[in-house]
C-alpha cells in the first residue's frame, strides 16, 4: 500500500514560538526577503504562525495557528497550473516542480490558505550565510513559485534508505524540519494509510478539524482544538 503522508498539529501544545518557521527556512533554503519586501507582504514563510487577537484590553485573547501547505487531496492549485508544475504525487503530496514553473501565479490565487509563495527576485545570501544552504534542496530563481513540501527530501531519503536496507519504514522515522524542531512536540507527521500510525490515530481524535474544511479541498493537516482557557 503506498504511503499517504499527513500531519497533525495540536493547538493545545503549540506555544506560537515559531521555531518551526525558522527551521523550515534553514532546511529548505528559503530566502529572507529583507524588511522592505516583508513590509509589502512578500515574506516567504512556508509555515507561518497566524495570530488573531480577540477582545478588548485587558480581556485580550490570542488565537494562533501554524499554517502550512495542507497537501490537499483535491488541491485547487493543481488543475490550474498550465505546465503541470503543481501536481499530485502517488504518495498524496502536492508536488511543486520548480523547473516547470513559468510563474503565472494562478496556483497562488487558487490556494485558499495562501500558502504558496513567489520568488519576486533572485534570492541572495550574504556570505558566509551561503555556506548554510542545504545541499539536498534546490535554490529557486526569481519568477518561480514555491511552498511547503512536507520536506520531501527527507521523505525520499528515508524511503531510499529503507528500500536499500530491505525493511519497512517505521512510523516516526521521518520528521520534516518543523516537526523535528517543535519544542512542545505539537506536530506529528506520519502515514495516513497506516491506521496504527500516530498521525492517523490523532487525526481521528474528536478534537480534530480541518482548516477551511468546507471548501472541499480535502486537506491532510488535522488541527486538534485548543482546550486550555487562554
Amino acid at each position: 500500500m503506498p504511503h499517504r503522508w499527513g500531519m497533525v498539529v495540536d493547538l493545545d501544545r503549540c506555544t506560537g514560538c515559531e521555531a518551526c518557521v525558522t527551521a523550515c527556512h534553514a532546511e529548505n533554503n528559503i530566502p529572507t526577503v529583507g524588511d522592505r519586501q516583508a513590509a509589502r507582504g512578500r515574506a516567504m514563510h512556508w509555515i507561518r504562525v497566524e495570530r488573531y487577537f480577540e477582545g478588548v484590553f485587558p480581556d485580550v485573547r490570542v488565537k494562533f495557528r501554524p499554517v502550512l501547505c495542507q497537501q490537499c487531496d483535491a488541491a485547487p492549485c493543481e488543475p490550474v497550473c498550465p505546465t503541470y508544475a503543481s501536481h499530485h504525487t502517488e504518495e498524496g503530496l502536492n508536488a511543486q516542480v520548480y523547473n516547470r514553473c513559468i510563474g503565472t501565479r494562478y496556483c497562488a490565487n487558487a490556494c485558499p490558505y495562501s500558502v504558496r509563495f513567489f520568488n519576486f527576485f533572485n534570492p541572495a545570501w550574504e556570505t558566509p550565510l551561503h555556506l548554510q544552504l542545504n545541499p539536498d534542496v534546490s535554490v529557486r530563481e526569481g519568477g518561480v513559485m514555491e511552498k511547503c513540501t512536507f520536506c520531501v527530501q527527507r521523505i525520499t531519503a528515508a524511503e531510499i534508505q529503507a528500500k536499500a536496507e530491505r525493511r519497512e519504514l517505521k512510523d516516526g522515522a521521518i520528521a520534516p524540519a518543523c516537526v523535528q524542531s517543535c519544542p512542545a512536540k505539537a506536530m506529528v507527521f506520519g502515514d495516513l494509510n497506516d491506521p496504527e500510525s500516530e498521525a492517523s490515530r490523532l487525526a481521528r481524535s474528536p478534537r480534530g478539524s480541518k482548516l477551511l474544511g468546507d471548501l472541499g479541498t480535502q486537506p491532510k493537516v488535522t488541527y486538534l482544538e485548543r482546550q486550555s482557557p487562554v
Binding site: D73, A74, A75, P76, C77, E78, P79, C81, Y84, S86, H87, H88, Q218
Partner: peptide, 14 residues
C-alpha cells in the same frame, strides 16, 4: 498521466 486536483486523468469536460 499526472493527477491534478483529484480529477480523473482524462477530463473530458475540460
Amino acid at each position: 498521466p499526472l493527477s491534478t486536483g483529484n480529477m480523473p486523468i482524462v477530463t473530458w469536460w475540460a
